[in-house]
Design a protein around this nucleic acid. Structure first.
Lengths: 244, 244
DNA sequence: TAGTGGTCTAGACCACCGA
DNA sequence: CGGTGGTCTAGACCACTAG
């Protein structure tokens, strides 16, 4: 059973099908979903497999389950017709924007020795070389974000200007055939700096929302340490968490 | 097998034990953890149970697993000796602050009819009554956050001033014996408003970090719609996400 | 008591990796 | 090839809820 590439496992296929059904209103919100055994029969799988599929929906915040009662749709999830996906979004801006043209201005692109903070976050030895990239990015001509990115030269070889004007993430996954696995983010508010004023048209009283991120490949290697500074009125970060 | 209260399931106990071992340095970071079968024998459980325990650690961002290789500790997790728990923190300020005294000033406490936005977020019918609470909170005398909270009177009965000066979450879980299940958060930066200037000592150029939250009980009922406005230099929000 | 989801088992087969 | 983790099964027992 492949777990990447074009084939999905049974529980993933079932989870996708159930997500689609819920979003399309196939199930009545005021009623519990069909019980596990009924769904097992419909999809012709064992109970453990069905359970694993439904567990995905719980982690998505799409349903909740209560022993002795059943499985219920989280009503507020359907209110605006879209799922909360932001804290699962591990890819970059290019993949997130569907209706809009992302343009990048490369403010800085050089290779430097990593300072202590960068080495610490990327788990690098002394004298390591990293790309230092600063890009100002706009959507449909509207200034949106200034991104400061550091990537180890040894992990992401062959980066060049052409890639920067497109999408680094596409280059990593398609050209280098690496898989992005997880990300650690810190979100904070900050006063605007000079680049924010220049590229985001910030006034002194316009805050920025900064997202500091360490990105990891599936093999656990840190490949990216970045700061994304957004105009306060153009970006918000959403998150869903479930008690385990 | 109880799943709440004082008894934890096997996989939860094992996950806790493994978390403790990893944080105490029992396992060499440069080596894979013992393989599944070895751990199964040590803990005397089946492979599925061991797998479920290890899956918890993956969701914590504490380890990563690679087929054909093994299970490895995420090195950067240990750097500052603390886990990333923020996007799992469903409880309030009182539970999050260990070394420090949380004090609350009740700015507003009344019962009002919920407006459309509140009804929308709490999934309430028209003419529903909600508590409207505004509290300014400090840690060790330092102003920290201004919280605007709306809770349905029907879901959280008997709220009073005494509770507000302590912890609403403690009241919900201990006095009402309800269980908090999940939360949806939106984080954004904003300019300071009048209350921020008054209670957080914000200047016009000091941003605030606002966390909008809808909290749900384990039975899926929304019990809280709130806005927490923090001084930009006193708070940051952290998040860990894993591709599934 | 009947029906729900939660946990756990013992075993099977598969995909991926390095030697 | 042998060893790793990933998926899946068929069945068992348990906890919680409602009637």
């Amino acid at each position: 059973m492949k777990n990447c590439g074009d084939t999905l496992s049974k529980y993933q296929l079932i989870a996708n099908e159930m997500r689609a059904r819920i979003n399309q209103g196939v199930y009545d919100e005021s009623e519990p979903l069909p019980d596990e055994m009924t769904l097992c029969e419909e999809f012709q799988v064992s109970r453990m497999t069905m359970k694993k599929a439904l567990e995905q929906l719980v982690l998505d915040g799409l349903v909740y389950r209560k022993r002795g009662h059943g499985t219920f749709i989280m009503k507020s999830n359907l209110q605006d017709g879209r799922l909360n996906l932001a804290n699962r979004n591990l890819k970059g801006l290019t993949a997130s924007v569907k209706n809009g043209k992302v343009e990048s201005t490369v403010v800085c692109f050089e290779i430097v020795f990593a300072d202590e903070t960068i080495r610490h976050n990327l788990d690098l030895p002394e004298d390591s070389l990293v790309y230092k990239i600063i890009r100002a990015r706009s959507i449909n001509g509207e200034p949106y974000v200034v991104e400061y990115t550091y990537m180890p030269v040894t992990v992401i070889p062959g980066l060049n200007q052409a890639v920067l004007y497109d999408s680094i993430y596409t280059y990593i996954e398609q050209s280098l055939e690496l898989t992005i696995g997880s990300a650690r983010k810190i979100i904070r508010a900050d006063k605007p700096n000079e680049l924010d004023k220049k590229y985001l048209n910030c006034q002194d009283t316009d805050p920025v929302l900064e997202v500091e991120q360490v990105g990891y490949l599936h093999n656990g290697i840190a490949f990216e340490y970045s700061f994304s500074r957004h105009r306060f009125d153009k970006f918000e970060f959403t998150s869903f968490s479930v008690r385990r």
